[in-house]
């Protein structure tokens, strides 16, 4: 991934593997997700998992990638806002994402566009509720929950950062 200030990258950070288990992480805009995943595919990364987390600003989707030869965990983070819980499916590039995305749909109700069969995977098909959604008093701000990494494009861990990411994720819509 290019290190220049790409407008689709809101922020990126290098982490200490000892402390967090990550090597670097990128905040990107939802619109540019496929493009970045495509780049990672070309670089020979494999998909570890896709996880989602509910925060005050919306839903933070994290795609974990790793490499066989030169391991270093990379996290692609996308913020999906509450009003529009949709994001592109990356299953056309990584078919392994099919199940991970269905799992996120099960637990959080996030809709993945262009997913061939977005049906419940682990939960019963008739189940309506999304078990991992939190009540509003339990929700935390995004900046509170980030790993202890050095944010490069913006100051780490303050309230502005969360707002910045939120605005950034609205770009290109």
């Amino acid at each position: 991934m290019s290190k220049q200030a790409d407008s689709s990258i809101c922020a990126y950070a290098y982490c200490s593997h000892e402390q967090t288990g990550y090597e670097k992480h990128f905040f990107i805009t939802p619109a540019s997700l496929l493009q970045h995943v495509q780049k990672l595919d070309e670089l020979g990364y494999f998909l570890e998992d896709i996880t989602c987390m509910q925060v005050k600003e919306g839903f933070l989707l994290t795609y974990h990638f790793n490499r066989w030869e030169k391991p270093g965990r990379l996290a692609l983070r996308v913020l999906v806002v509450e009003e529009d819980k949709t994001i592109d499916s990356i299953s056309s590039i990584y078919p392994g994402a099919l199940w991970h995305e269905r799992e996120c749909y099960d637990f959080f109700g996030i809709v993945f566009k262009n997913h061939p069969s977005l049906i419940p995977l682990l939960l019963p098909p008739e189940m309506e509720e999304r078990p991992l959604l939190k009540s509003s008093e339990k929700l935390r701000d995004l900046y509170e929950l980030l790993p202890g990494c050095e944010q490069v494009l913006h100051a780490p861990r303050d309230e502005e950062f969360g707002q910045f990411i939120k605005e950034c994720s609205q770009k290109g819509k």
């Binding site: 402390q19 967090t20 288990g21 990550y22 570890e48 998992d49 974990h64 509170e144 929950l145 980030l146």
Partner: peptide, 22 residues
């Protein structure tokens, strides 16, 4: 507060626990 990822090698492959603390 913070987030970590810890991976170990299980008998079936890479086991990862992604933990977020507030």
């Amino acid at each position: 507060r913070g987030e970590v990822y810890f991976a170990v090698e299980g008998a079936r492959g890479e086991i990862g626990v992604n933990l977020v603390s507030d």
